[in-house]
Computed example of a mutant assay.
Amino acid sequence: MKKIREATKEDMINIYMMGFDVWGDDMPVEKYITMCQDTIKYKKGKWYVLEATDTKELLSSLIVYKLNPSEDLIVKGIGSIATPANSRKNGYAFLLVKETINKLEQEENCNNFFLYSDIGTDFYKRLGFIVLPNESQKYKDSICMYYSKENGIDSISFDIPNYF
């Protein structure tokens, strides 16, 4: 069995290390962990993990940010999606993103989600995300994508968020 839950303070080094091989830029592990611990954006969001219930192993992680562009809309940004290198290609990140969205839809009535993809679009398209039109893209190397069960991309009447 697997479950999603909010990350604890004790989880954070394991979470940071899930992306070390991709985001570590050849720096020493200690320096990378300190950089992550000091990153303001990592302190602004809420971290979630997918955990194996029998072993308590962390299988995947992500961070969710509040992006509310107006008082009547609930908008979230999903970022820093990572899985330990030896556990990739098992569907853990897919399950975590899917279940986190379901949780936020049910518990917070959130129906608008953005993310920036650095891995191409196919993975997120399988989850129902759509690529924003070219004129809405803000960055060359990261593609902004949107997900909503209720609202089409044409109904967005607020500014597309910057990379979060």
Rank of each mutant, 00 (worst) to 15 (best):
T121L: 03
N162Y: 11
V29L: 12
V64C: 12
R5T: 08
E71W: 01
I74W: 01
K56S: 14
I119M: 10
C144Q: 02
N102E: 06
Y48W: 10
D26Y: 02
Y139W: 03
K44R: 12
K9S: 15
S157P: 00
M145S: 06
I101E: 04
K2W: 04
T83H: 01
D54A: 14
K138H: 12
D11Q: 03
M12R: 10
N134A: 15
L95T: 14
V131N: 07
L67A: 11
Q137E: 13
P161Y: 08
D25R: 02
E99P: 00
N90D: 00
L127A: 14
S70W: 00
F113W: 08
I15M: 08
Y92I: 00
A7W: 03
I153E: 10
N109Y: 08
G77E: 06
M12W: 01
L67I: 02
S155T: 14
N68T: 01
E150L: 15
I160Y: 14
N90R: 09
Q37F: 05
S148F: 09
I63F: 05
C110L: 07
E10G: 15
F113L: 11
M12D: 03
I81N: 04
N162Q: 10
Y42R: 06
G152R: 02
L115M: 10
K125S: 09
N162E: 15
D25N: 13
I156Y: 05
K43W: 00
G91D: 03
D122A: 14
N151C: 02
S157K: 12
K44L: 14
M35R: 11
T8Q: 12
I119P: 01
K66G: 01
V49K: 02
T121C: 13
P133R: 08
K125T: 10
I63G: 06
D38V: 00
N109Q: 13
L127W: 11
K149C: 09
